[in-house]
Design a protein around this nucleic acid. Structure first.
Lengths: 201, 201
DNA sequence: CCTGTTACTTACTGGACGGTAACTTATGGT
DNA sequence: ACCATAAGTTACCGTCCAGTAAGTAACAGG
């Protein structure tokens, strides 16, 4: 007697076990590991043990997932900087606090999407929102540098390129394969801060 | 009398008007503008007024084009650094010479591919060759910094993270939309060098 | 126990894209 | 003048992938 073909019982994930946050975490991880373009929705769904169309229950499209990652990182950054920052500090101190948090954020998968997201893959609206975010972030650092120049804790003839220089230094960390790296965040931060404030000359 | 269907005379590009260099220039430009993944071979061919299969006459595949850009930039860099560098200089001076050339190179389309190429799109072999290139580049700068520490023209407690910091600062320029930027290379270079050597404290 | 909503599923579509096969035309050497 | 080769062409394939249509299981409230 041939084995009767048993109707396959699809194992559904527990109801409610999938949510936006979980999708964002998984997506951010994969976007960072493989790159946005080469991460397919099937990849993400597979990693979550669900199917691609299920993702569309939670997000309208792929870009929405990316933007959700970006803006959730930004939300966290803003909350946390509001907590840590103090306008009575010197500009220099405020720059340090800013950069410390910045480094913390961008060395996590969700955070790295905030700086490595490629606006060229985005819709017009997404690109605008993203570029606004970046502009505000830029102004936040440059503002603190200017405050430092005013209060005498920082000495630079110019702040725009200085800001770019500093952001470049930190942002590039997003390109490191830091999961493998053994170097601690503290060491990186201390060294970067030393280069920025003391120079190497 | 109906218009006779005229056999369309395909306008072929002049023989020999297409060569590897031209393909590389066009590709590098488009890779930089749109990103490697979103630049199709049809895009490149179209920009050159040829067809996609023609590209395969000159290159084995898409990756070969990217690698050709990367290594041609590297070749140029090595030639030019050999010309400009002088081991009798101080380490500091040698770092400056190195970074000056580095900035020049990475602000051109072909050059930017050297730092923005994503090794995750590459084959195993391509990735190895590319990572070797990056490692050698890294050692070249770190070596000069070490020389500076030895001869007293540079003061740092550690060279590895310092090297990363500096490369990050410069590499990130590749992410700028510098075609639109009005800021001159000289200004960028001077400001960056000042941050690196003098600090902002 | 019924029923509506939530949260998934299977099955599919349409377009894009890297790459290939086979053919054609221009040119330089003999 | 002929031909081999270089440098293109047209037409096509297979795969991948974002997104969709339609169906179904699980749970909550009544």
């Amino acid at each position: 007697m041939p084995t009767k073909t048993v109707k396959p019982k699809p194992v559904r994930p527990k109801r409610g076990s999938i949510n936006k946050k979980l999708i964002m975490d998984t997506s951010a991880l994969m976007f960072h590991e493989k790159g946005y373009d080469r991460t397919t929705l099937d990849d993400i769904a597979g990693a979550l043990s669900i199917t691609k169309p299920s993702l569309y229950y939670h997000f309208a499209n792929k870009e929405e997932i990316l933007l959700a990652c970006v803006f959730s990182a930004d939300d966290y950054f803003r909350e946390e900087i509001a907590r840590r920052d103090d306008e009575s500090y010197t500009g220099r101190k405020r720059v340090e606090v800013f950069l410390r948090l910045y480094l913390e954020v961008i060395t996590h998968d969700i955070g790295v999407s905030m700086i490595l997201a490629d606006d060229r893959v985005m819709s017009e609206e997404g690109r605008t929102r993203y570029n606004d975010l970046r502009r505000v972030m830029n102004e936040a650092l440059e503002g603190r540098i200017k405050a430092g120049v005013t209060d005498g804790s920082i000495h630079v003839p110019e702040t725009k390129l200085t800001t770019y220089a500093i952001f470049g230094m930190f942002n590039w960390v997003g390109h490191w394969h830091f999961r493998k790296s053994s170097t601690s965040l503290e060491k990186v931060f201390d060294r970067f801060i030393s280069v920025i404030f003391d120079g190497i000359g």
